[in-house]
């Protein structure tokens, strides 16, 4: 699915990266812990979070995420948005809370990556 379709499904506002909306979103990962993002986010996956600090942008950039969705209408400050634009990480904000947000994407065909990186059963 394209990021543009994700935007429509989630009634999301684009904060930066308008030119990245044609990007393909393969999987999705939702969480509020940086270490877990560094563990689970795969290239081209979409990151859903309620954290709005600069670390989320660094993480998304380092992990080659296709973009970041902030839930519950949250918006990071201008500096974070600018830094993200510079690093080609599109940022979107949706009014939906995290559970609804994941549910909407899941019922529209986006799945998580079930592979367990630490090799547990």
């Amino acid at each position: 699915m394209k990021l543009k379709e994700v935007q429509q499904i989630l009634d999301a506002e684009v904060l930066c990266g308008e030119d990245c909306l044609e990007r393909e979103v393969t999987t999705c990962f939702a969480c509020d812990l940086i270490s877990e993002m560094l563990l689970y986010v795969k290239p081209q996956s979409l990151l859903i979070t309620s954290l709005i600090n600069a670390h989320v942008i660094h993480t998304a950039q380092v992990m080659d995420a296709s973009g970041v969705i902030f839930v519950g209408g949250k918006k990071p400050d201008e500096g974070v948005i600018r830094n993200s634009a510079m690093n080609n990480v599109p940022l979107l904000t949706t009014p939906h809370p995290i559970f609804e947000c994941c549910g909407l994407l899941f019922t529209n065909g986006i799945e998580g990556d079930k592979k367990n990186p630490l090799g547990r059963d």
Binding site: S35, M37, L39, H55, P117, L118
Partner: peptide, 15 residues
Amino acid sequence: EMGFGAGMGLPNMKQ
């Protein structure tokens, strides 16, 4: 508060 402290950093580095 910033999203750290999952206790996953060192296991992740080892991996």
